[in-house]
Write a protein that binds this DNA or RNA. Structure first.
Lengths: 104, 104
DNA sequence: GATATATATGAACACGTGTTCATGCGAGTG
DNA sequence: CACTCGCATGAACACGTGTTCATATATATC
């Protein structure tokens, strides 16, 4: 299916989305590009923290950056990321009996 | 978009997929249900480790378990998980100039 | 029922990582 | 050109978490 390196690389993407604040940053950019300041105030996080996270998300191409005047706006780079998030949200809200058990 | 609790819950799902061994376990079950023993030998991991990971994945409904004879087989529970993985893989292999930079 | 096989669980350790505080940098503006 | 605003970076700490070793459970088979 996937070799070890690919798996590690893919896991790295998921790991980035696996931190609440970071995921919040990504999802907040789903509707419209947001400036760093906007993200900071909407999520009530320190500006430093947001910047640290944005750097990682940008590097992984989970967000893309673009300057508009003084500010830098972040947005979702492609449809795969968007659809992936959609699917995961659907999985989350999907009704489910907690058949955690072996018997299904 | 998503409230804080939903974001945390969703992040938890991604966090689980964000560990290479765990992601390997999930993706190895993409094609066909696999027994714990099969997973253990294919990924060359300790049986204990695999079981620990399976427990978490099962609880998060990223995998479902079913007994067949002596063994327990794990498989992907629904289409959302499968599609989500597909999208993420496509995002991974997507050609990209490393425009990590602000200028796009 | 006893033994073996397949999987699950618990405790403990080593390590990575999210966060903060302080500071640096660069583009726009007067 | 100096100044400021918006964002980025670096160091350091506190905490969570993946892994292993040892052991427990449960389902088949004899």
């Amino acid at each position: 299916m996937l070799n070890a390196d690919q798996t590690t690389e893919l896991a790295e993407l998921f790991r980035l989305l696996g931190e609440p604040n970071r995921l919040g940053i990504v999802t907040s950019c789903l509707d419209e590009p947001l400036s760093v300041g906007e993200i900071t105030s909407r999520l009530s996080l320190s500006q430093s923290l947001v910047s640290h996270h944005l750097r990682l998300l940008r590097a992984a191409r989970l967000l893309k950056a673009g300057r508009r005047g003084k500010q830098i706006f972040y947005s979702i780079p492609d449809c795969h990321v968007r659809e992936m998030l959609t699917n995961m949200i659907e999985h989350l809200i999907e009704p489910h009996e907690q058949d955690d058990d072996i018997n299904a």
